[in-house]
Design a protein around this nucleic acid. Sequence first.
RNA 1: GCCCACAUAGCUCAGCAGGAUAGAGCAUCCCCCUCCUAAGGGGAAGGUCGCAUGUUCGAAUCAUGUUGUGGGCACCA
Length: 563
Amino acid sequence: MLPDQLLAFIQSILQSLSKDENNQIQDFSKLTVEKPKSLSYGDYSTNAALVFAKNFKKKPYELAKLITEKLDLEPNIAKTEIAGPGFINITLEKQALGCIVNTIIDKKSDFGKGDFEKDKNINLEFVSANPTGPIHIGGARWAAVGDALANLLLFAGEKVEREYYFNDHGNQIDNFVNSIIAKYYKNDIPKDGYDGEYIYEIAEKIMPLAEKKFDKLESLNDLELATAKEFIREKSVNIMFGEIKDSLNNFGTHFDIFFHEDDLYKTDEVDQAIEQLREKGYVYEKDGALWLATSKEGDDKDRVLKKSTGEYSYFAADVAYYKNKRDRGFGTCVYMLGVDHHGYIGRMEAVCKAFGDKPGENMIFLIGQFVNIVKNGKVVKLSKRAGNIITLDDLVDAVGVDAARFSLIRSAVSTAIDLDLDLLVSHTNENPVYYVQYAYARCSNVIKNALQFGVDIGKIKSGKGFDSSLLTQTSENDLLTTLASFPDIIKMSAKSFEVHRIARFLETLASKYHTWYSHCRVLPNTPDEIGDLHFARLALNCATAQVLENGLNLLGVSAPKRM
RNA sequence: GCCCACAUAGCUCAGCAGGAUAGAGCAUCCCCCUCCUAAGGGGAAGGUCGCAUGUUCGAAUCAUGUUGUGGGCACCA
C-alpha cells in the first residue's frame, strides 16, 4: 500500500463519515499522509482528524477514533494509534509496506515521474550572462539550479524549454570593446570597462586581425573607427560566447534555445510590441523620449522605451522579448535572476499586466541570492570589472562538476551561500555529494558481488524471485518509507520550483541506506547460503540504487558504480 | 528616504501550504572493520529558531512592528 493509496483511502473514509454526519467536505488539500518524524510512531502518519475536526464539530481525538475504526478494517493495515493532539499513526503489514520495492523495480527510471498539466508550456530562462566575460560564480549557481529545475519539471510532467538570452549590443558591449582596444595598446582601461587576463587574451587574438584589415586604430577617422570597432565587437563577442558555451557544456548544462537580442530588431518585433502597448494606451512621449506607463500597473515609475537620442532602451527589448516568448506559445515564462536585478520585477510585471497577462501565472521570477566566496573566513569581494572573478571554470577545476553542482543546488536559492573554496579544495570529502554517490557505489558493488555469486539479478530486476514481505527490520521499514516518499518529493519540489529539496532528499535516502547496509547484510558469506531473505534484500538494494540514480540524474550529478 | 530578500547549533545549511521531543553535514569527544567498499555505522555534547506583540487548541512556520545583514532604487544593461 503506497502513501497515495493510503491518502485516497483516508479520503474515502472521511467522505463516508461526512455522509453519516450530514456534512460535506470539499477541500482535501490540507490532508496529508506523511512519514512521521520518529520511527516509533509507525510507518505513516495522517493529520486527518486535526484538519477536519471542525467540519464534524468534534474534538480531534473523537474524530480520530472514528477514522481509526475504519482503518482497522483494512487488511493491509497492521496497527493504528492516536497520538499527540490527534495524529493517527499507521503501521502497515509487512507485505503492504514492502510492495514499494516492486513498484520501483517495475517503473525503473520512471519511478517518481508525474503527470502534470502539460498545457502550461514553460520557458525557463537562466544564466543569460552578457558575453563581456566568463561565467562567474553567480551564473554558475543558475547554470546548476536552472538545468536541474528544467530536468525536474520535465520529470514531473511539464513541458519545458531552456533558454539563454544573448545580449550582444549596448553600452556594456561597447565598454567591453573599448577595454579590449585599451588593453592592446596598453592604455588605461576606460571607466566602467573590463579588466583581467581574458581581456588581454582576446585582444591578442583579435587586434592583429583588426590592424591587418584597418591599419592602426589611432590613424583611422571616425567612420573607419566605427567600422573597425564593429569588426572587433563581432569577433570578440563570438569568442567570448564560444567560451561561455564551452564552460556550460563542460558543466553539463545545455540549452534548447540561444536567443539573440538582435533578432528582435531584425524582425521589427520591438516596434510591434510598442505599437501593441500604444493601442492599449500605455505609451506616451515626454522630453523627447518614448515612455511606457508601467506605473499604471504598480511599478514605481514609468520607464523609457526609446531614448531622446532615438535609440531603444534595453527595457524595450525586454518588452518585445516577453511578447515574443508568449507568441512562441509559452504559457509560463520563468525568469531566473540574481538579487542585483530584483528591482526589475516591478516593471516587468507591469508589462505582463499591460499585455493582459497575469504575473505569477504567465510570468514567474525566481530570485537567487549571491554566492559568496570565502577565504580565510572572510567574504572576498568579486567584480568582473576588477578582474578578480571566480569563474565557473575555476570552480569546476577546483572541485569537479559533481561537487560544484551539488553544493550549488543543495541550498534554497533564496538564501545566500558562502562557499569556502579552500575548504572545498582541501577536504573534498566533506561535500555531501560524495556521501550520496558512495551510497550508490555501495549499491552497485552489492549487485556486482551478487552476480559473482551467480544470482540471477535480471530476474530480480524484472520484479520476480523475491518476497518483499520478508523485509521486517526497523532500518528496512525506514528505508522503504523513505523510498516511497520520492514521488511526493518530486511533486512538491516541482510545484514550488525548489530543486534543493531533491538534493536534501538524496542525502536522507543515502543516510537510510548506509544505516540499513551496516545493520542488515544483503549477501551471505558464501553463495550456497543464499536464501529468500537475501533475495528480498537484494531487491531492496536494487530499488534504492534506482531511486538514487533517478534523483542524481535530475541534478545532473553522475551516479558512479564505484568510488 | 523608499522597495525587496534574509536572520535556526561553533561553522555551512535544511525544516516554514501552522502540528508530536527543532534536524543534517562539518568541527569537538567516545565506540565499531577475522563480516557485501570505514568516502561508512553507533553514541555524547552543542539551540531563548534576531527581538517584541498579535492571530489560535497549537507558531521556527502566519500578521504587524523592531533590530541587524545583503541587494535594488538611470533616457546603464
